[in-house]
């Protein structure tokens, strides 16, 4: 199942300059793994040595941050969009 993955500016150099790519998988973890196999430069960027998401990387399925869903086990369905974003200071401060 092909899922659209949005790539932030800061990581596009590792994804052939593209702002969005396709990857396969039924969970966020599978999608990221497939992404890393297509674009090897991405692997070290997304996950830490412990296998969890890098601390400055947020991953969303549609509008929801997967850290507060089932993390890398969060399921994705056809038509949903996975977005990778760097963590930044919020606006309302």
């Amino acid at each position: 199942m092909a899922i659209t993955v949005r790539i932030p500016t800061v990581l596009r150099a590792h994804a052939g300059g593209k702002s969005s790519v396709e990857a396969e998988g039924a969970t966020v973890g599978e999608v990221l793994k497939d992404l890393a196999s297509r674009y090897p430069g991405m692997s070290g960027q997304l996950l830490g040595e412990d296998g969890n998401l890098h601390r400055f990387v947020n991953v969303y399925v549609d509008d929801d941050d997967v850290r507060y869903l089932d993390k890398l086990y969060t399921t994705v369905r056809e038509g949903q969009v996975v977005s990778i974003l760097p963590a930044v200071a919020g606006g309302g401060a």
């Binding site: 800061v10 960027q45 601390r55 400055f56 990387v57 760097p86 963590a87 930044v88 606006g91």
Partner: peptide
């Protein structure tokens, strides 16, 4: 995050 994250040079510019 929109355009705000475009100013980052690399992930370590991120912030929690």
């Amino acid at each position: 995050a929109g355009e705000l994250v475009d100013g980052l040079r690399n992930l370590d510019d991120g912030y929690v």
